[in-house]
């Protein structure tokens, strides 16, 4: 039995970059445990995903994104065996998900979830039907974006939220689907949780408000349970007002908007998993 502490894990290694700030965000949001665990520790079987409630897949460049963003990273999780078991890490993640726990992937972590088929996972299917590819501008960019939150989304991370202002920092963030049916289903099920918007909060295809040309302005999606969520913008990069690019000229609350996503996750765990 787990004690009544919220345990979060951030997987690190092989090119992840944001593990420290993600763990920091989890702590700030109230998690009692926020462990940064190297993937070698998981593959060696010394640390088990099952001991945690909230799995974070952080931003970075897994294996340099050499084969396309997160492709080689997804391949490792799908094929590398965990020592002392018949399982791969992908198997462990499936069990983690089946146990009703939470997963959030940011940037490279989102790319990883999509390319492993964890998102959107209509009706539990692991077939990849969306992807994230090169920005329409063909270049990496770091800029802040407004995001409109779908209030009807089942996503547990965005409950009660209307808008977010977060930085995007990627070269392969253009969200596309394999066909229009997939897109329609995403929209109909309200799985397209956050959309790039102009400052009046209208979803937009115009650069630079939509920084990468994502279809239907989609910046992040969840699975039908709402417990698995991935997005390109970086919530862990706005947890304090000094992260905001205009903090020297605007009156801002102490907590940054990105922290809200982690607070919602921790609240859900306390209310649903630890009750």
């Amino acid at each position: 039995m787990m004690s009544k502490t919220v345990k979060t894990i951030v997987i690190a290694g092989n090119g992840t970059n944001c593990e420290r700030e993600v763990a920091h965000a989890c702590k700030l949001a109230g998690a009692e445990v926020a462990d940064i665990v190297h993937v070698a520790e998981l593959l060696a079987g010394r640390v088990k995903l099952a001991d945690y409630h909230f799995l974070n897949l952080a931003g970075g460049f897994l294996d340099g994104d050499d084969l396309g963003s997160a492709k080689a990273g997804a391949n490792r999780l799908l094929h590398a065996p965990v020592v002392g078991s018949e399982q791969t890490l992908a198997d462990q993640i499936k069990q983690f998900v089946a146990a009703g726990k939470l997963v959030m992937g940011v940037c490279n972590g989102f790319q990883l979830m999509v390319k492993m088929g964890l998102l959107p996972a209509f009706a539990g299917s692991a077939k990849q039907n969306c992807t994230l590819t090169h920005n329409q501008g063909g270049r990496f960019e770091d800029r802040w974006s407004w995001l409109k939150v779908d209030p009807e989304s089942p996503c547990v991370f965005t409950r009660g939220l209307e808008r977010l202002y977060l930085p995007v920092r990627h070269g392969e963030g253009q969200f596309v689907t394999d066909n229009t049916a997939t897109l329609k289903q995403l929209e109909a099920m309200h799985l397209s949780v956050v959309k790039y918007a102009d400052s009046d909060l209208n979803p937009t295809m115009e650069y630079p408000d939509n920084p990468n040309g994502s279809v239907a302005s989609i910046a992040g999606i969840c699975d039908p349970t709402g417990r698995l969520f991935g997005l390109m913008p970086h919530p862990e990069a706005y947890v304090h007002y000094t992260h905001h690019p205009r903090w020297t000229r605007e009156e801002l609350p102490e907590e940054g908007m990105g922290l809200w996503l982690y607070q919602n996750a921790i609240r859900f765990i306390r209310e649903e998993l630890l009750k």
Partner: peptide, 18 residues
């Protein structure tokens, strides 16, 4: 903009301001 100037979440005065 082609350089990530915010990873590690520590950049308080960024290269672009205003």
């Amino acid at each position: 903009r082609r350089y990530d100037h915010e990873v590690q979440a520590g950049t308080v005065i960024k290269p672009l301001v205003g």
